[in-house]
C-alpha cells in the first residue's frame, strides 16, 4: 500500500482533495462542488478518494473558508489559510515562481513571492466582480457550458469593450453589446479582457508582477482569461496541471511538514465519512449581540463550537 499526505480545500464553490507522496508529487486529486453543504462535500470527497486510491494517510491538512469545520471533522494536523496554502503549492509545483494569480469562486488574490517567500499579497475586498461565480452566471445566461466559455474567446476577431469594474455594470454592458448585434466570441473575449483589467487594477494594484507567473484556481481553466492576462502583462502565464486543486496540494505539503514536527498524524481515518455529522445552532440571548452559536456534532457528541464573541460558549 502506498503512503502519502492529504490536503482538503473546502471553498465556497468547490471542495478539493489532493494526495501527494513524500516527493510532493500528486498521486490523486478530486474536485467536487460544495453546493452549500460543506460537511456532505467533505464526507463524499473522502469516500470517493478512498475508492480511487488505496493509501495510508500519513498526515492531513485543511484550508479554504471552511477549514476549521473540515479540520474538526477529519482530524487535521494543520489548518492553514488559503493564501499561505496557495503560495506553498505554487512554489512546490513551479520552482522559482514570483507571482501567483489566483481566481476562485468568490475571491481572487495575488501573491508575490521572492526566493520562495511570500513578500506581499492582496485579496479582493469590496466586490466579487470577475470571480468564478460571475463567469458561471454569465455562461449559463448565454447557455454555454462553462468549460467551453473561455475557448470561445480565443476565436474573437475584435473583442468589444465591456465595463469591468462592477459585475452589475458588466452584465448590462454585455447585454447592450449583444443587442447591438456583436457576435458571441467578441463579447466573451471582451468580458475576459474587462475582468483581467479589473483584477489588475483592483487586486494587483501597485504590485510588481514578475515572471514566472502562475495562474491557478478554478478560473485558470478559462483559456480566454489566460490569454487576456498574457496580453496585458506581456509575459507567459503558466497554468499548472492541477490548477484547480492547488489549495489542497498546498495544504498537503503543509501537512507533510507539520507531521514531521509532530511525529504522528491526528487523521481520524476514512471512517469519518460514515459517521453522522450534523450542525445545530442557537441564538445566545445573554446580551444584545445575539450571537449565533454553532455546534458541530459527531453522532450525539459535540466536537466543536464556534460563533460567539465572548468566551461564554468556548468550552465544548
Amino acid at each position: 500500500m502506498k503512503a502519502g499526505y492529504m490536503g482538503i480545500d473546502v471553498g465556497s464553490v468547490s471542495t478539493n482533495i489532493a494526495i501527494i507522496d513524500e516527493d510532493k508529487d500528486v498521486l490523486e486529486s478530486l474536485y467536487l462542488r460544495t453546493n452549500g453543504q460543506p460537511i456532505r462535500a467533505i464526507q463524499e470527497g473522502l469516500m470517493r478518494i478512498q475508492e480511487l486510491i488505496d493509501i495510508k494517510i500519513l498526515g492531513v491538512g485543511t484550508t479554504g473558508s471552511a477549514r476549521n469545520l473540515a479540520g474538526v471533522i477529519v482530524g487535521a494536523d494543520v489548518i492553514k489559510n488559503e493564501i499561505t496554502a496557495h503560495a506553498v503549492a505554487a512554489s512546490t509545483v513551479v520552482k522559482g515562481v514570483q507571482t501567483v494569480l489566483e481566481i476562485g469562486g468568490q475571491d481572487s488574490k495575488i501573491i508575490i513571492l521572492r526566493d520562495g517567500i511570500v513578500i506581499d499579497f492582496a485579496m479582493n475586498t469590496v466586490c466579487a466582480a470577475g470571480t468564478g461565480s460571475f463567469l458561471d452566471q454569465q455562461a449559463s445566461r448565454l447557455d454555454i457550458p462553462i468549460e467551453e466559455f473561455g475557448s470561445l474567446a480565443l476565436g474573437a476577431n475584435s473583442p468589444v469593450r465591456i465595463a469591468g469594474r462592477c459585475s452589475v455594470f458588466a452584465e448590462s454592458d454585455m447585454i447592450h453589446k449583444q443587442q447591438l448585434g456583436h457576435n458571441l466570441e467578441d463579447i466573451i473575449a471582451g468580458l475576459c479582457q474587462a475582468l483581467v483589467r479589473n483584477y489588475l487594477n483592483n487586486v494587483g494594484k501597485g504590485k510588481e508582477i514578475l515572471g514566472p507567473v502562475v495562474f491557478q484556481g478554478g478560473v485558470a481553466a478559462n483559456q480566454g482569461i489566460k490569454a487576456a492576462f498574457e496580453e496585458e502583462l506581456g509575459v507567459e502565464v503558466i497554468v499548472p496541471e492541477y490548477h484547480n486543486v492547488m489549495g489542497a496540494i498546498g495544504s498537503a505539503v503543509l501537512a507533510q511538514s507539520a507531521v514531521k514536527k509532530k511525529k504522528s498524524t491526528s487523521f481520524k481515518g476514512f471512517d469519518t465519512s460514515s459517521f453522522d455529522y450534523h450542525v445545530s445552532s442557537f441564538e445566545c440571548n445573554s446580551c444584545p449581540n445575539h450571537c449565533e452559536i454553532i455546534n458541530i456534532h459527531q453522532e450525539d457528541e459535540i466536537i466543536a463550537r464556534w460563533g460567539s464573541k465572548c468566551p461564554k460558549w468556548e468550552a465544548v
Binding site: 473558508s65 492553514k80 489559510n81 488559503e82 493564501i83 499561505t84 475571491d107 517567500i117 511570500v118 513578500i119 506581499d120 499579497f121 485579496m123
Partner: peptide
Amino acid sequence: GYITRLEAFVDLLAR
C-alpha cells in the same frame, strides 16, 4: 475573511 488575511500576514512575517 478578516482572520484569513491576518493569518496570512503573520505567516508572511514569520517566513
